[in-house]
Structure formats: structure tokens, C-alpha cells
Nucleic acid binder design. Structure first.
Ligand SMILES: [Mn+2]
Ligand SMILES: [Mn+2]
Ligand SMILES: [Zn+2]
Ligand SMILES: [Zn+2]
Lengths: 162, 162
DNA sequence: GTTTTCGCGCAACTCTGTTGCATTAGAACT
DNA sequence: AGTTCTAATGCAACAGAGTTGCGCGAAAAC
């Protein structure tokens, strides 16, 4: 009956509750989707997953994501495809988000690299005042790396034959 | 008469020439603007500066920037405001772009930190294949840091009086 | 000078995200 | 439970950044 594993739904409901603000179906559902995901999700992906259930306006999804972010229940990552990706916030001390990210150059998937504490101590011009450091590793994910290798192989074959 | 310092214009012309492709007024002008800038410029800024001269369609500016980037005469940086910023490529070995960037949280200005060679050796999940590392330091630039400090000061004063 | 073709200008379009406003529904208080 | 208050939702219209298609113009090759 319930479209989402109860655990995520319940955890989400609890987290929204604790903020003191209104706990709406929309907030709980979106947060549950984020909790269930093992990677950062775009607005499109979130909207798709959430609308297997009741249904929710796209604007509402945008507003809920903004709300979750401002209440530190989620954080967002800017992609080079001009799309924000979101994931549920871990148990980091409020407002840090001090971990690195990996972005696949092939499929666009984004994951958090929770262990990697970004390298501080970058030399800045005088007068500049650092606040946060953002570290993104780009490359091929486990799914795409073999495929890319195979493609390179077959291209080499083709050239050879020709 | 000529709106741009001749040096940049000539360097730009030479660089476009060397690619073997057609050297058009538009390519030369845009590249000259990038060479003259001490920071990364958005499409808007480039269009503005370029149109003090003859005049150029916005789509052409987009296409020229894409062309410059693909020929390694410029590189682009994704901002969290969903806007690309460009600057002329330095003398780095082709296609690396291995330096870090600084972005001001107040005015949005982006500069390249050429000395800072990004920290490699980020531990990845197995099967993942790294290709590039992107390092962005966010904070306040030399122009905005004093202003922000002054603002904090006056806010504290106000609270104190009250 | 003629021909070829690449690049430009213009208009229309797409995609991601925002804003305004009337309506709905949490939750607090009888 | 019913009433009230207000925050949040739904819908429609909008905005900004970048893209696409196509006819025309101007580099450069001949
Ligand atoms: Mn993250
Ligand atoms: Mn750079
Ligand atoms: Zn991938
Ligand atoms: Zn600044």
C-alpha cells in the first residue's frame, strides 16, 4: 500500500516534526525519497519518484527542497549541467557540509564522498577571506567505467580494420 | 579608435590564427576581452564589453565561447548561480585546467588560483575512475571582506544600544 | 574574380527555476 | 468535534541562461 519503505517515511516524518514547523505530506514524502536514495537526486528524479504516490506540483517540490535545505535536512550540489542535486543531510554538525563529491562524466551521477575531508590551506591573494572549500572529483562511476573501456576497445578495432 | 588595447587584440588574433580555423572579428574580439580581464567573466559581461565595439549577437557570443573552450583557448567554470564564467586559458599543458578557483560569496566574482595545484589522492569507492579534480574556495574577496566586517560591526552596535 | 564552405544573425525554442495569488489544510484553541 | 488562524500548496504566468534551425554573408581556397 505505502509506496515507500515505512522506515524512511517514519524517519522523515520524525525529522520534519523536530523542526517545529508543519509536517505536511509533501515535506515528508520528499525527504523520504532523499533518505532512500544512495546518491544525489535532481529535481526531475525527485518529482518522478514522489509522483508514483499521490501527486505533487513541481513548484511544491522546488519549495520543499528549498525548505529542507534551509533547515539542514538536505543539502544541494551545483552540477555543471545547471541542475541542482539534493541529498538528505548526514549527521554532520549543522551547516558545515564539509565533504567532497564525485560526479560521473558519463551518466552525470553525483555521490557524496563522506570520508574525504577537503584539503584546506589553499594560498589566497592578500585580503581574501576563505569560508568554505568545495572539492569535486570528476571521472567515471563504477557503472560507466567498464562501458567506456569497452567502447574505446571497439573503436580501436574499427580503426584497425579500416 | 580601436576600443581594446592593441596588445590583447593582436595576441588574440594570433592565437585564433594558430588553430588553423577561420579568424573572424567575433572570435578575436571575444578572446581579446578574455585576455584583458583579470577574472572570469560571465556571458553577460563579455557581451557587454564586446558590444562597446561593433556589435555582436548574443548567440554568436555563446558559440564563440564554446569554440574557444573546445580549442583550449579558454576554459569555463560552473558557478552556483547557474552561470558559466570564462577566462582565457593560461599556458598550461593542453586540456588539464588543473588549478583551483576562488568565488566571492558576496559579489560573485570568480578568479583562478593558479598556484594551488588541487589536492589529489581522494579515496574513491572501488570501480570508480577519477579524471579531474575541481577545487573551489568560497569566501569574501578583498573588496567585499572589509564591507562585510563593517556591517557586522554596526549590527553589533545596534544590538548593544537596544 | 569566382566558388566554396564555415560562421553569423535572427527568431523561435527548451530547460530550470521563480513569483503572485487564490485555495487548502496543519495545528492550536476552545 | 468544531472553529479559527496562518503557513503551505496548486496553478498559471513569468524569468534567465543557453540551444537549435536556417538563410545569408564573408573568410579563405582556387
Ligand atoms: Mn554532499
Ligand atoms: Mn580557471
Ligand atoms: Zn556513470
Ligand atoms: Zn566580492
Amino acid at each position: 500500500m505505502t509506496p515507500m519503505t515505512p522506515t524512511f517515511h517514519d524517519r522523515a516524518e520524525d525529522l520534519v516534526q523536530r523542526t517545529g514547523a508543519r509536517v505536511t505530506r509533501q515535506r515528508v514524502e520528499v525527504l523520504a525519497v532523499l533518505l532512500a536514495a544512495r546518491r544525489a537526486l535532481s529535481h526531475h528524479e525527485i518529482e518522478g519518484r514522489v509522483n508514483r504516490g499521490a501527486g505533487m506540483d513541481r513548484v511544491t517540490v522546488y519549495r520543499v527542497l528549498e525548505w529542507l535545505t534551509s533547515h539542514h535536512l538536505a543539502h544541494k550540489i551545483a552540477g555543471d549541467d545547471r541542475v541542482w542535486r539534493f541529498n538528505a543531510a548526514g549527521d554532520e554538525p549543522e551547516r558545515t557540509h564539509a565533504h567532497a563529491h564525485f560526479k560521473c562524466n558519463d551518466c552525470g551521477e553525483v555521490i557524496c564522498l563522506d570520508e574525504a575531508t577537503a584539503a584546506r590551506s589553499v594560498p589566497l591573494p592578500s585580503g581574501f577571506h576563505p569560508q568554505e572549500v568545495e572539492l569535486t572529483v570528476k571521472g567515471l562511476c563504477a557503472g560507466c567505467a567498464p562501458a567506456a573501456a569497452a567502447q574505446r576497445r571497439s573503436r580501436a578495432h574499427a580503426q584497425h580494420r579500416h
